[in-house]
């Protein structure tokens, strides 16, 4: 799984927990565009991912736990 696919997975999970609107805004602020066809990133993928994951983790301890869990499952280094 590459970073874009992982972002998509985290976002999808986030829709259920935080609502689609919240996640889409969080992603947009990080320079990530989420759409039904996938993830588009205008700048550096790693930097955008880091920004998105930071915002995601800060929402609740539950979010941070889930992000860690998914990263472990998919062998992604945060």
């Amino acid at each position: 799984m590459d970073m874009k696919q992982f972002i998509e997975l985290v976002a999808k999970r986030g829709y259920g927990i935080y609502g689609k609107e919240t996640i889409e805004k969080m992603a947009k602020d990080a320079g990530i565009s989420l759409s039904p066809t996938g993830v588009a990133i205008s700048g550096n993928v790693e930097a955008a991912a880091r920004k998105f994951f930071d915002a995601y983790s800060k929402t609740t301890p539950v979010a941070a736990m889930n992000l860690k869990m998914m990263a472990k499952m998919h062998n992604i280094k945060l």
Binding site: R13, G16, K20
Partner: peptide, 11 residues
């Protein structure tokens, strides 16, 4: 979107 939120708890 519930099934994804369910995974977030179950996993």
């Amino acid at each position: 979107y519930y099934l994804e939120a369910m995974k977030a708890f179950g996993e």
